[in-house]
């Protein structure tokens, strides 16, 4: 089951490189977060740990329900078009993402020793999600896509944290959730402001400051 969920995360992440419209990107983020929540739930069941149950619940309520909902509201409020605006077209993006996947695999197998295959795969999936998130941030024009890219990167980090034997300390993880929520709200607020002042959210046109 864990393998299956990891595989799903890999597929969903690779698919985000092909996405050109915002609702689809948001949906991918939602599915990816759902897989992550299920993965945590599975670990909670296996270890019988209440802390992990709470984390799984938080993942589900924040990243699957609340944050995507906030974005839906934001999109309706600013009334921007759905297109993400691609600096690189979908095919080239996919090729680059595949290369990123190979790099992640190489990296993970050099960090984690050979017999722990599940750990290796998890870490490489985590890196892959992170790198893809960062890649989306630099290769998409709309400010909204950058925020989703950041959220994908953070999903990758959560996945990486599951590799640690025993997981991250509980309170640190709770505080991280709070932090992510606050930063998403602030980023959303700034998108709103950018839209109000510039009448667009096209970051390639934010070039008033140079030198």
């Amino acid at each position: 089951m864990t393998w299956l969920l990891l595989f799903a995360i890999l597929l969903i992440t690779a698919e985000t490189a092909l996405v050109t419209r915002f609702p689809a990107l948001l949906r991918n983020f939602r599915y990816q977060s759902l897989c992550l929540a299920l993965l945590t739930l599975l670990a909670a069941y296996r270890e019988g740990s209440i802390e992990l149950y709470i984390i799984a619940g938080l993942l589900f309520s924040l990243k699957v329900l609340l944050i995507p909902h906030l974005f839906d509201v934001l999109i309706k409020r600013i009334g921007s078009s759905d297109h993400l605006g691609l600096f690189l077209n979908a095919q080239v993006s996919l090729l680059i993402v595949i290369v990123l996947g190979l790099i992640s695999w190489y990296f993970a197998s050099s960090v984690v020793a050979a017999p722990a295959y599940l750990q290796q795969l998890t870490l490489s999936a985590a890196c892959f999600v992170m790198l893809t998130g960062i890649f989306l941030m630099v290769s998409r024009i709309k400010a909204l896509a950058q925020v989703i890219g950041l959220l994908l990167t953070e999903n990758g980090i959560f996945l990486a944290a599951t590799v640690i034997p025993g997981g991250m300390p509980f309170f640190v993880e709770i505080a991280l959730f709070f932090d992510i929520l606050v930063s998403v709200m602030i980023l959303g607020l700034f998108i709103y402001r950018i839209n109000a002042i510039f009448t667009h959210i096209d970051v390639s046109k934010l070039s008033g400051l140079r030198g």
Partner: peptide, 20 residues
């Protein structure tokens, strides 16, 4: 203003990626 919001956006995004 246009400049200050642009600066704040770049600051937030670049530093958020860094800190991630």
């Amino acid at each position: 203003t246009r400049h200050s919001v642009e600066a704040a956006w770049k600051y937030l995004i670049i530093c958020s990626v860094g800190i991630t």
